[in-house]
Each structure stands twice: as structure tokens, then as C-alpha cells.
Amino acid sequence: MVAKIGLLALQGDYDKHSHILAQLGMQSVLIRYPQQLNEISGLIIPGGESTTISKLIDISNLRQPLLLFARKFPILGTCAGLIIISKLQQEDSRVKTLKILDITITRNAYGPQSYSFIDNLTVIIDNKRSLNIDVTFIRAPQINTFESNVEVLASYNNMPVAIRQGHHIGLTFHPELNNVILFHQLAFGHALITRPYF
């Protein structure tokens, strides 16, 4: 039995995540319709443009189904995908977020593409395991505030860049561009037992 993980395939670099899921022995399913959420036990909302993804979520009638899905199953949001599941620091009619995570976020906080970068992060999980990984920040957002139920997994310049809240994981960067499998493992490692009837 193979765990099926959805890739929200409205816009963005979703295909890059399927390679990582394959390494973890998981099957990827491209998600474009609400009823497809019934087939999967976890979802990745990829990087892309948050304005575009937000608009297509409404066009595709996915807003309510995604909120219901998030109650039961893990979502991994990277970059624009993280924006989609967070609250905006400043409301902006261009991006209607799902407000699943109790964090506030600023879009494109580092500036234009010339300020995108690759750098090393130290990741701490359950206050013990510490890992060093290289990851890519592309016109990345920044997490401004977070509630006490949010666990910070990694920081950069003293700002949180990887967080966990319940079964959800949020990243301001792109692990898929450096073939980092850690966060996918963390988000979906238990996927098999959460939906045993498939």
C-alpha cells in the first residue's frame, strides 16, 4: 500500500515535489478538483505566485474543501503555498489566504529576484535533532508573528523560516529545489496510518 499525497496543481513548481515524494516511496496525485481531495492523505501547496494560486482556488471551488481537508490531514506549504495557508500581516485584496496557520506573513519580503539566495539552515526537531541543510529562497515571504501553538523548526537571521503547527508544516523557502526530503518526511511520514482504508 502506497501513501497518496496530493500536489495542488493550479500553478507553480508542483512537479518538483513529485521527485521527492517518489524518493520517500509515496505516490503523487495532481489536485485540480475538489473531489480529488478524498483520494489523498496529505497535500503540498507549492511555490508559485500567491495571487494566481489564490484566484484559482476560488475559480476551482477549492476554498471550503481545502479548509475541511486541513482539519484531518497534513498540509505542507512552501513559499507561496505557505502564504496561502497563513494570515497576511497586511490585508491585501489580491491574495485571499486560508488562515489555517496561526502566523502572520509578509509577501516578497526580501525584495526582487536579485535578492533571492541559497543558504544553509540549522533545523531543530522536537528540541533535539539538529540538521544542516542548504535551501533556496526565491522572492521569499517572511513570517512576522506566530502564536504559542506554533513550533519553530528553523530560523534565518533570527526570523522563523520553517514552522510546524499540529500536523501542518510551513516553509518560506524551497526544499524541493535542493532535493531536501526532511520536511516531506516530517509532514507525511505518518500518512499510511492516517488513512488505512485506502
Binding site: 500553478q11 507553480g12 508542483y14 512537479d15 518538483k16 508559485g48 529576484q113 526565491i138 529545489l177
Partner: peptide
């Protein structure tokens, strides 16, 4: 990386 994000 930015070109990847513009896909789709």
C-alpha cells in the same frame, strides 16, 4: 528557481 515558480 524563479523560472520554476512561474510554471503553470
Amino acid at each position: 528557481g524563479l523560472a520554476e515558480m512561474l510554471k503553470g
